Simulated assay, not measured.
Amino acid sequence: MRIACLGWGSLIWKSGVLPVEGEWHKDGPPVPIEFSRISDGGELATAICINADPVPALWAWLTVDDLATACELLKAREAIPAQRSDGIGSLIVTDRPAGALAKWAHDRHIDAVIWTALPPCCDKIESRTPSLEAALAYLDSLTGETREHAKDYICRVPAQIDTTYRRAIVESLGWTD
């Protein structure tokens, strides 16, 4: 089984235990992504955000051929607790793909696709998306190493993850690579 992983954040430059084979490809499917998850490290991380405009995700082949193992390795890389069942998304493609993601995978001879499916998070409340104003105020309030880490994150996310919040962050804070 050929398994691919979708990515749009730090997974691209820091795959950790996830066995990525080769480079990340830029022709991924459109996914509604936004800088909408205040993470433990203080950065405003990318997450699937249902109301966001879709942007092309990146994708990479994995060197494992077992979907359960691939999902466990992605959970380990993302530090998702074992008891949390909603942190990883997956799709197995058949000979008759249905939907845009299945067709995209089928066209690339991908048998299964996995991705991190953590929701937005604001004020330590999962599934709460910060408003654009709140996101900018949050980032602007950061100081020291936390601010540098948050800026580094924004700058390292691939340019094709061109979102409304990112454009506002660049305009307001000047955070560009």
Rank of each mutant, 00 (worst) to 15 (best):
M1T: 09
R2N: 10
R2G: 14
A4Q: 03
A4C: 01
A4F: 10
C5G: 03
C5A: 09
L6I: 00
W8F: 01
G9M: 09
G9S: 15
S10T: 08
L11M: 15
W13K: 12
W13D: 04
W13L: 08
K14G: 13
V17D: 02
E23S: 12
W24G: 11
W24C: 06
D27T: 15
D27S: 15
P32H: 02
I33C: 00
S36Y: 02
S39D: 05
G41Q: 05
G41M: 07
G42D: 06
E43Y: 06
L44T: 07
A45N: 08
I48V: 10
I48P: 05
I48H: 11
I50E: 04
N51G: 10
N51V: 08
D53P: 08
V55C: 03
A57H: 01
A57P: 09
A60C: 04
A60S: 00
W61H: 03
V64E: 05
D65A: 09
L67I: 09
A68V: 14
T69S: 09
A70M: 06
C71F: 07
C71N: 05
C71D: 01
E72K: 06
L74G: 09
A76K: 11
A76T: 00
R77F: 05
E78F: 00
A79M: 10
A79F: 08
I80H: 01
I80Q: 01
A82L: 03
A82C: 06
S85Y: 13
S85L: 12
D86W: 13
G87Q: 04
I88T: 07
G89P: 09
L91C: 09
I92E: 13
V93A: 06
D95L: 13
P97R: 03
G99I: 04
A102I: 09
K103M: 02
K103I: 14
K103L: 12
K103T: 02
W104P: 07
W104Q: 00
W104G: 03
H106V: 02
H109K: 15
I110L: 04
A112R: 06
A112L: 07
A112V: 07
V113Q: 01
V113G: 00
V113F: 03
I114L: 12
I114W: 03
W115E: 01
A117S: 14
L118Q: 05
P119A: 11
P120Q: 09
P120M: 10
D123W: 10
K124Y: 03
E126I: 05
S127H: 14
R128F: 12
R128S: 11
L132I: 01
E133V: 03
A137G: 02
A137W: 14
Y138I: 11
Y138K: 14
Y138Q: 03
L139K: 13
L142P: 02
E145C: 02
E145P: 06
T146R: 11
T146C: 13
E148Q: 08
H149R: 07
K151M: 15
K151E: 13
K151G: 13
D152V: 08
D152K: 12
Y153C: 01
Y153F: 02
Y153M: 05
V157I: 00
V157G: 05
P158V: 08
A159D: 12
A159K: 12
A159F: 07
A159C: 02
D162H: 07
D162S: 04
T163C: 05
T164N: 07
Y165K: 12
R166Y: 11
R167Q: 15
A168D: 11
I169H: 13
E171S: 15
E171D: 15
L173N: 12
W175L: 15
D177M: 01
